[in-house]
Every structure is written in C-alpha cells, then in structure tokens.
C-alpha cells in the first residue's frame, strides 16, 4: 500500500514534487545551466589545448576524450617555425603602431568632441560613428590598388597605413564617451586660473582618462591583432610578412604533405593565451569600454 501525503492545498507531495518545488529545482536547474554555459564557452579552447598536446598521429586518428600521453613536441615545433615566429613579431609591430597612432591622434579628437562645444560637432560625431561601422571589404579593391601602386604588397607597412581605418574611429568613439563622462568643474577651474585648453587637456583630463586610454588601447590592440581581411589580401604574397591570423590560416607545419592539425592547434594556443590572460585581467574595463558607446543610448 502506498501512502500518499498531501500539502496544505490538498495537492499530493512526493519526491518528484519536492524536487520540482521552486527552491530545490530552481537551484539545481540554475547550477546545471551555469555549468552548461561554462562548458559551452570554454570547451573549444580546452579542446585546442588538448589537441595541441597530442602527437600528429594521435590527432588525426580516431580521437579519445582524454589524452593519456601529453607531449610538448608541437610547441617546440611551433617555436622553430620561422613563418610563425615572424608572424608573432609582425603582428606585435603592426598592432602596437596602430594602438599608438590611434591613441595619440584619437585622444585629441575625442577631447574636442567630448569637451568642446563648436559648430559642426554633431556632424563630426555622426561621421565618426558611421566610420566605426565602415565595411572594410568595400574599400578592399581600391586600397589594394593603392598598396600595389606604392609597391607595398607583401610588406607590413601596408597594414600599418591601412589599420587606422578601423582602429581610429573606434578609439575616438570610445574615448569621446569617456571624456563626456568626466566632471566639468575641474576643467572650468583650470580655465579660470588661466590655463590654455591644451594645458587643460594635457595636465588635467589626460591623466584622468589614463584608465580609459589603457582599456581603449587594449581593445584596439585586440582588433588589430585579430584582423584578417587586409592582412590576407596584402601580405599573402610574402610569407615573411604574414601576421598571426594569416599565419594560422595558411599554416604549414614541418611535415608538408599532411595537414598539421596538432601543430596548428599549438600555434593557436600560443597566440590566444596572452589575449585570454589580458581579457581575464581587464574584463571589467573591457566590458565597460565596449558598452560605453553602445548601451548609453
């Protein structure tokens, strides 16, 4: 004989009913979902690490979930691969220059747009905003023509001159939002004391926006580091000028007749780990920076 218990509403209560009660079930389902989301976002990266620790043979054989014989042979190979080490250097140079140029020039413009009232300001704001959404592909053929005319194809200079197309408007837009958010009193006090607008900018506002500059610089760096379209089009003729994404896409390992799966994953891990570490360190600032322009509207 089963005995059935009833709650105060007269509804039956059993294990399942207890479990389905909002408190218990809710908590269980919630943590299950969290685990699911965590797994979903992180698993591919984990799998890249896992694959990179296999030998090439293991990587192309029927896979097993756990790698019982991890090996670092791929990492050794990757750092002996000149195409890849060149690419690391190239990407570092191009991204750093892009960041410096954009921050230097962009912070001026952002100060003007965020702090100074002048005729034509709205127009400039709209122009910059439109530029942040500028489709790079649209100017690819025009730019490639210019790059060829200047004889810069297969040279990272072509990337140095073309990357401001996307880094500069982005920098200006994000920094303008930061400048707008600063309190106006400091600046007025300095102006009353006889400081010139430039002194106000250098001495007072720039130090205050230092964190913003760091964040924006980081975001710009990531954007330039990850750029693929221009890099592929302008540098693919010369393996010495590959950037990291091009190098990964056109990766050829030491054994040329087969697709080097494990070695490529090792390269992928090498270029991603610094970015992931940066992101983990600066996650609060990054989210702030990315939403500064977007969410306030």
């Amino acid at each position: 004989m089963k005995t059935q218990t009833y709650d105060h509403n007269g509804d039956p209560v059993g294990f399942l009913q207890k479990f389905l009660r909002p408190q218990t079930f809710g908590k269980f389902a919630f943590y299950l979902m969290l685990a699911g989301i965590f797994f979903y976002t992180v698993f591919p990266f984990f799998w890249a690490v896992n694959t990179s620790l296999k030998t090439e043979q293991q990587a192309i054989q029927s896979t097993s979930y756990v790698n019982t014989h991890p090996t670092l042979v791929n990492y050794k190979a990757v750092f002996n691969n000149e195409q890849f080490t060149h690419a690391l250097l190239n990407s570092t140079i191009v991204s750093s220059i892009s960041v410096l140029v954009s921050l230097l020039i962009g912070s001026f413009a952002a100060y003007a747009l965020g702090r100074v009232k002048f005729r034509g300001r709205m127009l400039m704001m709209y122009a910059i905003l439109a530029m942040t959404m500028f489709p790079q592909i649209s100017i690819l053929s025009g730019l490639f023509g210019i790059v060829r005319e200047l004889d810069l194809a297969g040279n990272i200079l072509s990337l140095v001159i073309s990357y401001p197309i996307f880094t500069l408007p982005f920098t200006v837009w994000v920094l303008t939002a930061f400048f707008k958010g600063l309190p106006g009193e400091l600046e007025q006090a300095a102006l009353v004391d006889g400081a010139s607008p430039f002194q106000v900018f250098y001495r007072i506002l720039l130090p205050l926006t230092m964190p913003a500059l760091v964040t924006t610089g980081l975001l710009t760096f990531i954007a330039a580091w990850n750029e693929y379209l221009f890099a592929l089009t302008f540098t693919s003729t010369n393996a010495d000028s590959y950037t990291v994404p091009v190098s990964i896409a056109l990766f050829s390992g030491e054994v040329s007749f087969q697709d080097p799966v494990a070695e490529r994953m090792a390269a992928a891990v090498v270029v991603t780990v610094p970015l992931v570490i940066l992101v983990l360190f600066f996650q609060r600032q990054i989210i702030g920076g990315l939403t500064a322009g977007a969410v306030k509207g």
Partner: peptide, 18 residues
C-alpha cells in the same frame, strides 16, 4: 563573466580553425 569573454578574445581565424 571571464569565461564568457574567452570566445570573443580568440581571433576569429583561430576560432574558425579550432
């Protein structure tokens, strides 16, 4: 939140190869 930024931080080309 950090885990959620990981896919975003991985270069698109790298994630595609992955």
């Amino acid at each position: 939140r950090a885990a959620m930024l990981v896919p975003w931080a991985i270069p698109t080309v790298v994630s595609a190869k992955l």
